[in-house]
Amino acid sequence: MHPRKKRLVIRTVIILLLAAAIGFTIYQIFNKDKTVATGDKAPDFVLTDVNGHQVKLSDFKGKAVMLNFWATWCDPCKKEMPYIENVYKTLNKKKIVILAVNIGESQFAVQNFMDKYHIDFPIVMDKNRDVTDAYHIGPIPTTFFINKDGEIEEKVVGSMPSEKYIRQKLSEIEP
């Protein structure tokens, strides 16, 4: 190869290598704070409900799932609970599942809350917060709308404002 051409190739390779190293590192930095977002596959999990029954997310394949993360001490969660309960009462349960994940609280706290707010929809308990961590939950409540293929269609952070709002979102993921 002509020395000048060879030199150009070497220079190009070195500069591109460095650029790739910088680019990859920055990609990793932004990837590290990644949350579970729209379009991602919802991570599968197994948790037990207040009655000790195991609930596995992947068992609902073929149905749309509304997955709500909450805690008894969280006021915005309390606000949306009656809306969810009302939607649940008239839900087509063959097509749509509503599942709420309590974050790290005792059986007593969850049961008491369910009695107080007359909640019938299934609540599972994430005692060690493993699922909460895997879903990178920040502020609560956080609600995921998951389609029948297990993909997240939408993530709502904060209290959902009305029954109508929830019905609207559910109709969008209904298979």
Partner: peptide
């Protein structure tokens, strides 16, 4: 972990090599 600091170090690396 700032992107611009990483770029700065990367450019310094390029400068050292070149």
């Amino acid at each position: 972990n700032s992107w611009w600091f990483v770029i700065l170090l990367g450019l310094l690396g390029l400068s050292i090599i070149v």
